[in-house]
Design a protein around this nucleic acid. Structure first.
Length: 801
RNA sequence: GCCGCUGUGGUGGAAUCGGCAGACACACAAGACUUAAAAUCUUGGGAUGGCAACAUCGUACGGGUUCAAGUCCCGUCAGCGGCACCA
């Protein structure tokens, strides 16, 4: 029988669509399961073979859950705002909305050809005004709670995209998206106070089931460090506060450093005698791009402030103050106490500038290098701290500082507030009006959405403002508060805005009264299983957790965390083991694969290719093996024979396979689940016949992986109904066990024989069986047994001399 | 530099708790079918020595613990990913 995959796949895709088989029901009395994959950015290139890896994996989970009786929500949509579409629009003078429409249509037909069981009734699009209405609404709530604010600040400016970037979007000093140089620019920007949630974003990781590397990355990114804030006096009379994680080394502080942008420099301008040199250094630091700054990490530079000195609160000693760009104005207090003996950076700086190095923790050679080990050292040259361990000294000095009113314990985070403004067209307009009298006034909620106006050109203006700023009729409005002339905010939101809450909209996608109804949210949330790329760990996943927590705080959602479980798939690489890209010429188009091998084969291959969490190279020849397997499965129909239930020969194989496939799917071990089904097929082939019960079970197990073929087989067998209406097979643990098992007989740890024994043999019986087998008998002849090890069902090891 | 992960045949990869290394596939080779090829089916295979039974070696490298180590411990090397002047 020929396996005509094209006809079979088309047939069942049409049936599924016509019968609306995969629609999530609004019957909230059933147990629910919410499976989610990251919705794609509909790029002009169409679907990549990487996309189906994630989509198929959770499609398997979703299909299995339906068979297990759950009301399953497995939705899909489009994260369609963003730069590539806008750039394409600029180049080709086509409205981004039209470009988006075309790309979405292509993506959608490609996804449908994969037989993914998405509920297309709940399709969403972040560029749809009825969707971004609620993105804007959330922004307004953030604004009203003081979590959105505008700030004049130095921002990351991408010289290629001509747009402001969030810290998360700058990778090694260049733009994450286009690779262009990123420089600093001072601009007034909308910011979101994600830092206010830093501690909760760390703490609540304990409540969720994320794979460990995602948790670690998030913790590292948030970068919590505990220490103390210490007030140093200055000869100018001002207090200079520093943050340190090593307050124990206070006696070793031989100088101080402040960031080039530190406000005290201006304040002390009259006292600083070498202001020219200081100013020159400040200008130089400002000019450096992020890239140059990271490149020049090793070479410490700086200028000493002449005319102002710091005073160490612990001993009253005067010490010099430097400015240097190795101290960042955005972290801590923008000022540090430098302890060259016990900090590598301070040590390098001190060596270069010939500053004293005072050892206060014994254990290293501080003339050779900084001694930074906290665990073993003992305090010296530190007055009342002498003799204490580092940990004891930390406690004691902080207590002392508190008593003296010169310091207190302090926690700092590397996480910065989220730069939320983009000077671009193709994004959600920020719904704020600038009034000279009233300041920033939120657009009234009844006026939402603030729609994107038609413009002539999508190019940003020369001064870096959004193209929206050129549309006078849109910009000029009256102030909602006082009625005077006012102007709209012309910045738009970053791409991450729409994706920060999209999973909520799926719960109730057509609601025009709220972002989703309370009932729908209470029922569907949290997402039970969310799979996506590692690259979104510190961007999308962190941002959406932040928004979700905020929505929780204002009572919109009822769970503090959006995702109960988060997993991540590895990339699919080109055949040469490199990342797939147009320029490398190693891109595989899923359409071609579906045409040549069929969607079921592509799905199966992507799941069989290797460890789901690791990167795997594409192999055009391996895919043939998956096709061959499906053909063999289809040909099982010709082996259909008489007999009820499972045949004696295959009963335990079936129970074992049900167990293996059921468990492997839950642990992302799709490759071994498929291997188990291949083995079972080989077993059936060697029997030469298959019963109806066996066929039914096999079809059900394979269905989540190869849904079209299995539906077709089910129908051809005349089993009645559709596979999607059946129940997931159950296994009997008792029947997973064979009556007889092979055990290994070892002599001094080396295998000498294998023998079949009853599975329930006692230890004594096993030992006796092994001792009496001919191979062991001759080996044991005339020797004294030293040790006997018996592992039931596995082996017996006899050590003798 | 710091943190995390990984290292197994010609290839992708298997191997709950330490208990038969190499499941399942790809590629390869031989055979069957065929005028022939493709497809399909059957068989084979870690390496070395041996006709063979068998022996020795073998999970990046060097040590260790153990009756028994891919798995645990110490050290080294290589690759990948993240963070990176965060005080």
């Amino acid at each position: 029988m020929k396996y005509d995959f094209s006809a079979i796949e088309k047939k069942w895709q049409d049936i599924w669509e016509a019968r609306n088989v995969f629609a999530a029901s609004d019957d909230y009395s059933k147990p629910k399961y919410y499976a989610l994959v990251e919705f794609p950015y509909p790029s002009g290139q169409g679907l990549h073979v990487g996309h189906p890896r994630s989509y198929t994996a959770l499609d398997i989970v979703a299909r299995k859950r339906r068979l297990q009786g759950y009301n399953v929500l497995y939705p899909m949509g489009w994260d369609a705002f963003g730069l590539p579409t806008e750039n394409y629009a600029i180049k080709n003078h086509i409205h981004p909305e039209i470009v988006t429409k075309q790309n979405v249509a292509r993506f959608k037909s490609q996804l449908k050809s994969l037989g993914l069981s998405f509920d297309w009734n709940r399709e969403i699009n972040t560029t749809d005004p009825s969707y971004y209405k609620w993105t804007q609404w959330i922004f307004l709530q953030l604004f009203k709670k003081g979590l959105a604010y505008k700030k004049e600040m130095s921002v990351n400016w991408c010289t290629g995209c001509k747009v402001v970037l969030a810290n998360e979007e700058v990778v090694n000093g260049v733009c994450e998206r286009c690779g262009s140089e990123v420089v600093h620019r001072v601009k007034s920007q909308w910011m979101l106070k994600i830092t206010e949630y830093a501690q909760r974003l760390i703490d609540d990781l304990d409540q969720v089931n994320y794979i460990e590397r995602v948790k670690t990355s998030q913790r590292n990114w948030i970068g919590r460090s505990t220490g103390a804030q210490v007030d140093f006096g200055t000869t100018a009379g001002d207090t200079l506060t520093v943050f340190t994680t090593r307050p124990d080394t206070l006696f070793g502080a031989t100088y101080m450093v402040i960031a080039p942008e530190h406000p005290y420099i201006q304040k002390w301008a009259d006292r600083i005698q070498n202001m020219d040199a200081v100013k020159a250094y400040q200008e130089e630091a400002a000019r450096k791009s992020d890239f140059e700054r990271t490149e020049l990490v090793k070479d410490k530079t700086g200028v000493m402030l002449e005319g102002v000195r710091g005073i160490n609160p612990v001993n009253g000693k005067e010490i010099p103050i430097f400015i240097s760009d190795y101290v960042l104005v955005t972290y801590g207090t923008g000022a540090i106490m430098a302890v060259p003996a016990h900090d590598t950076r301070d040590w390098e700086f001190a060596k270069k500038f010939g500053l004293p190095i005072i050892e206060v923790v014994k254990g290293g050679n501080v003339e050779q290098e900084a001694f930074t080990d906290c665990a073993t050292g003992v305090m010296v040259n530190s007055g009342f701290l002498d003799g204490l361990s580092v940990e004891e000294a930390k406690v004691k000095i902080v207590d002392w500082l508190k008593e003296q009113g010169k310091g207190e314990p302090k926690v700092n985070y590397k996480l910065r507030d989220w730069v939320f403004s983009r000077q671009r067209y193709w994004g959600e307009p920020i719904p704020i009006i600038h009034c000279d009298h009233c300041g920033f006034v939120p657009v009234d909620e009844s006026e939402l959405p603030v729609r994107l106006p038609e413009v002539e050109s999508y190019e940003p203006t020369g001064d870096g403002d959004s193209p929206l700023s050129a549309i006078d009729s849109w910009v000029n409005v009256t102030c909602p508060k006082c009625g005077r002339p006012a102007k709209r905010e012309t910045d738009t939101m970053p791409q991450w805005a729409g994706s920060s809450w999209y999973f909520l909209r799926y719960c109730d996608p057509h609601n025009d009264k709220a972002l989703a109804s309370k009932e729908a949210l209470n029922y569907w949330m949290p997402v039970d299983w969310y799979n996506g790329g590692m690259e979104h760990t510190t961007l999308h996943v962190l941002y959406s957790r932040f928004w979700h927590k905020f929505l929780y705080d204002i009572g919109v959602v009822n769970t503090p965390e959006p995702y109960a479980k988060r997993t991540s798939h590895g990339m699919i690489l080109g055949e040469n083991g490199e990342k797939m890209s147009k320029s490398r010429g190693n891109v595989v188009n899923p359409d071609d694969i579906i045409k040549e091998f069929g969607a079921d084969t592509l799905r199966l291959y992507e799941m069989f290719i290797g460890d789901f969490e690791k990167a795997a190279p594409w192999s055009q020849s391996s895919i043939k093996g998956c096709k061959r397997f499906l053909e063999r499965v289809y040909n099982l129909l010709e082996m259909r024979g008489a007999g009820d239930g499972y045949s004696k020969e295959l009963e335990s194989s079936f129970h074992k396979t049900i167990k293996k496939v059921s468990e492997d799917i839950e642990q992302l071990k799709f490759n071994t689940a498929i291997a188990a089904m291949m083995s079972l097929t080989n077993d059936i082939y060697s029997q030469g016949k298959v019963t109806d019960q066996e066929l039914k079970t096999f079809i059900l197990l394979l269905n989540p992986f190869a849904p079209h073929l299995t539906e077709e087989m089910w129908e051809q067998c005349g089993f009645g109904g559709m596979v999607t209406q059946q129940s997931w097979p159950e296994f009997d643990p008792a029947k997973c066990q064979d009556a007889q098992v092979e055990i290994v007989a070892q002599f001094c740890g080396k295998i000498k024989a294998r023998l079949m024994v009853d599975a329930d043999s006692s230890k004594e019986a096993l030992l006796e069986a092994v001792k009496s087998c001919p191979e062991m008998k001759s080996l044991l002849e005339g020797k004294t047994i030293v040790k006997e090890v018996v592992v039931p069902g596995k082996l017996v090891n006899i050590v003798a001399k």
